[in-house]
Every structure is written in structure tokens, then in C-alpha cells.
Design a protein around this nucleic acid. Structure first.
Lengths: 211, 211, 211, 211
DNA sequence: CATGAATGAGACTTCATTCAT
DNA sequence: GATGAATGAAGTCTCATTCAT
């Protein structure tokens, strides 16, 4: 023991990332107030005191998590609308299934739950998320809709509300998966939802009877 | 002090209701963990100890709020689908604007936020809400869709997913109003959303160009 | 209901007695601090508030119980030594089996436990019991011993310490029954103890061999 | 404040012991329910929260005190009967004065009071003490008596009851010192009691007159 | 007299945060 | 940088006590 080899050496620089990861998991699971720093520390494999080396307060850590995790979300969204915008009818399924795919890769539901649940207690975080993620996604869609309307592809109507028609079911699907399924609800296949919903957006639910 | 105001006057049966009301407001605002019994007591105009006359623990009170508040929700839903189910195309706008109306009358957004935020910490409450409210609403819609499909009014497709297409935007609208608007987002007119979304559901967003 | 016969009428005067009885049971069982007024009230079949009709505070009630219950104890002791004091050797078994008999008729163990346990918190009660019961009993015995010593029946020695030799095992027996038996100890027959201990007091334990 | 005294200094391994010591004092004095954690903390020179670093609950702390303090008691008893058991008549005074000595070194009275007072509220503790201390002491004596009876030194009779005859006065003496003396009773010299009681046990109280 | 309803004071307990090492 | 030990502040809950009826 005395002059032996240390059993392992810490990956110094990795620490903050590991902590953020652990914190995201716990915050997303429990919410801000119910999350215990001791749980986060344990999950990150460090002492409670170590958290304070990197983050000044619990609130700070929460902010960091929320913001840190917002960035990659935005990046994921960009490719969905970048480049030559094709015909609207062709874009929609791509966008919707893109969202379904993103939801597979990151704990989108947990994050949404966290942001929704703490929106009053941390207005700034709700702000950040609204501005950095939701609003950006929405505005991309609004843009697409407006362009499509100009080209005569999409009917007249408030583009923003069209955005909700478009996104709403996907978000509900994500929340359902996060909230209702653990409570005994039947699981939903987000990709099928994306596909069918794209159909609704294009042709409506009705068979013939217009008007 | 002598022959002054009595320190408190009994309002017997009213008390528990007043407490539940206050508790709903605070829980919906802050979430379970961040809600302080002193806030609830103050808002209800009683002492902290009085809460314990009617509810055994904070958890109990939360449960009572969540359950108590579930019942009227169900009642509100019933008229939306009762009676002769007319043509699907005529029902949809009614249902959607019905939801918009309900959202005006009760703090639907706050409740949703509360239930979503505490779903992991109180799985039973998520269960109750899923079963008593969401699932019930969804199944009413699923039923309508199935009937309409039989009559040839609605295209083939998973009725449950159609339900999400139908409800999703309204729920997103409600959450937007609760979460994003206080964080600086532009308000949404739920009735306009209902109307326009009904159009989407009927005819789709596209002008002519099918596929 | 309006002008009917009341279903039962309360035995007004009995109330305080019933309360004291209930209080004795609970105090003896739990001790002062751990005893809940609600338990006492329930056991007495009255409301908590009713206790305050007869006793000003919990402390008051405790005092009343301790004192009220001290009196009959003293009365029970009197016959044990009253009248012509016979020969000491004949008195001892009578006294000891008298104690055993008293222990059968009243919750002597519970009371002892109560007084012992609360002696620091209620010095006055320890005082009352010491003076009114223990000291009195002891002094009666001391007196007997002194008389017997004068008559040459009993050896020289501190009469007070003789008193402890005499009483100690009976008290230990009572405490054993109250404390150790519920905790799994083998029960003791107090009458047999009284008889055998009387033998010890008279002849000692040894066979012949006087050192 | 700058370069002043550190607010607290760690004494690592010492802490739990110091806390137990303080807790013993307070519990023995007040009983479980009436003991305040703040008193214990103050007496131990730590914050209330520090108690929770070492003990999960007040109950836990109480248990630890009762058990921790039982062990040394047992050790103290062992030498009293170990080794060649001499003649019974010679052992008795040794045992009794041994008890008197133990009572000088540790707060035997306080502990007894505590255990007796909380026996109903903490049956397990009464069990531990009965089994680990009382029963053990008693059985040692019972053994001695039985051996002595075989050798013809001690009269026939229930050895267990002889045990009570032997121990009872010492225990009463200890309780007297703890309970009655602070309430105004005349102090007792436990060593004198031991000596005189040993005489009683050997020869009885009577001068000549047998029977 | 009796009580259901209400409360103030205070207890135990938790937890984010800090300090000496 | 990292941590075990410690704590202050605050929260939930209990309970003796009071008040209007």
C-alpha cells in the first residue's frame, strides 16, 4: 500500500461531464426540489462536496444541466430543415420521423418533464428552453409553412397554429411515453405516430367528404 | 382583546374544500416538493396545524388534491360526446372547442404540469389521471373514430394514434399557455387553435397537391 | 328526535374518577411524556376537551393521579402493622404476604414504574410517594424492628437497612413482574417469594455452618 | 473571523462516544420522550444535525445507548463470580459489596431508571437488559446457590427466589439513591447495606429464637 | 357540562452547504 | 482537487391547550 501504484487515476477533465450526466438523470427523474445532491453525487461516483468544486449551488447545477442539454437538442434539429427546402408534403414526414428519432437518442421526455415541472420555480430555464429549443424548432416550421403557403402548397391559416398542429401530437407522444407508460398506459410507437400523423396533416382524416 | 373579534370562526364543512383549493393552487404552481405547507395554510386562511385536522400528511393532501380534482374533469368531458353522435366532421370542431372552453374554466394547465412533474414521485397519481381523465377522454375519441371509420367517414388507420393527432395540439396549447407564456412566449388563442386544427384534421394542410 | 327521551344520561359525578382511572392506566403504561391526552380521553370515553373541565393541565392530571392513587395505598398498609404487634418472627411473613396481596389488587408495578421513571421530571411526585407511601411503610417496619430489637428478638443493626433487606426483594419481585416478564422473563410467584424470603429473614440461608 | 478559531475541530473517532455519553446522561435523567435532542447535542458539544451523522433517529440513539452501556456492565459482573467458587458464606459479602462498588463507578441507578421507565415503550431494550445483565447476574447467583445447596451449605428452596432475596435489597438501595434521595430521602450507604444484608442472608435477623 | 374544531409552540428530521484536512 | 465531518436553516408533523357553540 505504502509506495504501491495507485489503483486508478482520475480522469480529471471528465468530472464535470460525468456530474452533469448524473444530474440530468436525477433532475429529469425527480424534478429540482425532490432531487438530492447526494443521489447525484452517488450516481456520478463522487462525494457531495466534489459537486461544489464545479458548481456553486444546486441551482447552478440545475441551470448548467438544463442549458448544457439544450445545445445538442438544437443541433439535432438543424439538419431537419437545412438545405434546399423540398416540397412541403415531402418535408413533413421527414421532420416528424426526425423528431421520433431524436426522442430515441436522448431522454427527451425526461427533459420535457423537468422543464415543464420546474417552469414556475425557474422561469429562466423555461425561457432558455423556449427560446433555444421550442421557439427555434417552431420558427423553422413556421418558416417552412410560410414558404409553402407562398408557393401555394399549404392552405391559408396562422402558420404558428399549424406548427402546433404539427408538433403537438409528437410532443404528446413523447410525454405519454415518459409519463403515462410507466403508470400503466399502453406504449406508443412514435415512428408509427409520426407516419400516420403526417398523413393527417397532408390529407386530413376524412375520406372524401370535404366541407 | 376583551370582547374583540373571535380569533377564528368555524365554517365547518367549508374548510376541507378551501384547503384543497389552496393546495391545488400551490401544488400546481410549485410542484409537490417545492410546495410549502405554510403557503397552503396561509392561502387557505388557516394554521398549518389545521391542515392536519383534515389530512394526515402532505402526501395525503397532495393525493386528495389530485384525485378530488380529477372527478370534475371527467364530468366536463362527458357532454362533449354524449347524445347522438353526429357526423364526425361535425363533432371534431365541437370537441376541440369544448376542450378550449374547459381550459378556460379550470386550471387545466397547472394540473397537467403538476401531474406531469410528479409522475415519477407519485406513480399512483399519474395512474389515476391516466385512467380517470386522459384514458377516458382518449377512449371516447377512439370510439368516435372507430364508428366513423365503420361508416366510411374516416380513413383507415390506428384510432388511438388518430386520437393523439386530435388531442395533441390542444394539450400542447394548454401547456404552452402554462409554461411558455409566463416565460415570455407569445400567447395562443386556444379557440383559434381549435378551429384551425379542426380544419387540418378534416382536410389536411395541403391545398390540392396530393402526394 | 326533537322532544324524545335522551338515550342515556351521564353519571355526572363519576366523570373525574373515570378520567383518573384511565389516566393512571396510560401514565403507568407509557410514562408522563409519552402519554397522550387523546389516549386518556379515549380510554375514559370523553373528549380531550373534557379533561380540561376537571384538570387544568396535563401536569395537573398527572399529579392528581399520583396523589389520588397514593392514598388508598397507605390505607392498605395500615392493617399490616396495626393492632398488638406480636412477635417479630410472626409478623414478618404476614407483612410480606400482605405486600404480595396488595400487588394483586392494584397495579403496584405500573405505579412504581411511573414514579421511578418520572422522578426527575416531577420531583414533587417522587417526594409525595416517598413520604406518603415508601417512607411510611419503611418507618412502620423500622418501628417494628426497633421494638423487636429492644425485646431482644432481633439482632443489633441499622433498622433502616433491615427494612431494605425486608422490602427490597418484594419490590424487586413487583418490578420484575412489571418490567421483565413482559420482556420475556419467567414469571415470579410473589406469594412464594414472600414465604421463602420470610424464611431467609428469620434463619438466613445457611444450614448450620455459622462461620 | 479571519484567522480566528476554527468553528469546530474534528475529533473523528471520539465523536460517537461523546454523543453516547451525553445521550446516556440525558436519557437516564429525563427518560426517552422527555429527552430533547437539543439537550443531548448541547451536552455533547455538537449541533443537533451532527447526531444524525452517527445515528439515524432518536430511537436509534436510545437503542445504541442502552445496548452500548449494557456491555461494560456485563464485564463488571464477571469477576464477581469467576474463579474458584469458595464457600457460599464467604462469597456473599464479596458479591454484595461488589455490586455496591459497581454502583459507585457507573450511573447504575440512572440506567435502571431509564430501562424501567421505558420498558413498555421499548420492549426490546427491556429484553436486552433482562437477558444481558439481570438474567446473567441472576443466573450466576442461582448457580452459586445450587452448588452450595449440593454441598449442603445452603438450605433447600427455590434458588431463583434466593437470588431475589440476595439482589433485591441492593437494587432497592440503588433505586433509593437515584429516586428517593433527590426527593428528600435520607441517603443510604450501599456498602453498609451490603455488609448488613450479607449478615441477614447468612444468619437471618433473629437472635436465637428459631421458629 | 361537553365537544369538535382550531392553533401555537416546539419537536424531530432533512439537506444544501462549508470547513479543515 | 477531493472529501469526510459538521452544521444552519428550514420543513413536516405532533400535541397540549383554547375557543365558540
Amino acid at each position: 500500500m505504502a509506495d504501491g501504484e495507485p489503483r486508478w487515476r482520475r480522469r480529471k477533465t471528465a468530472r464535470p461531464g460525468e456530474i452533469l450526466e448524473a444530474a440530468l438523470a436525477v433532475f429529469a427523474d425527480k424534478g429540482f426540489a425532490a432531487a438530492r445532491l447526494s443521489d447525484i453525487a452517488a450516481k456520478a461516483g463522487v462525494s457531495k462536496a466534489a459537486l461544489y468544486v464545479y458548481f456553486e449551488t444546486k441551482t447552478d447545477l440545475f441551470r448548467a444541466v438544463a442549458n448544457q442539454v439544450a445545445a445538442p437538442n438544437i443541433e439535432r434539429l438543424r439538419p431537419l430543415v437545412d438545405g434546399e427546402p423540398g416540397r412541403f408534403a415531402e418535408m413533413m414526414p421527414v421532420i416528424l420521423s426526425g423528431i421520433a428519432k431524436v426522442a430515441e437518442d436522448m431522454p427527451l421526455g425526461g427533459i420535457a418533464k423537468m422543464v415543464i415541472g420546474e417552469s414556475r420555480n425557474f422561469p429562466e430555464i423555461a425561457s432558455v428552453w423556449r427560446e433555444a429549443v421550442i421557439e427555434r424548432a417552431l420558427s423553422m416550421i413556421v418558416q417552412l409553412v410560410e414558404q409553402a403557403q407562398k408557393k401555394g402548397e399549404v392552405r391559408a391559416g396562422d402558420p404558428r397554429l399549424y406548427g402546433l398542429s404539427l408538433l403537438g401530437p409528437m410532443i404528446m407522444g413523447v410525454l405519454w411515453t415518459e409519463v403515462a407508460v410507466p403508470a400503466g398506459g399502453a406504449p406508443i410507437d412514435l415512428h408509427k405516430l409520426a407516419a400516420q400523423h403526417a398523413g393527417v396533416l397532408m390529407d386530413g382524416m376524412l375520406v372524401e367528404a370535404r366541407r
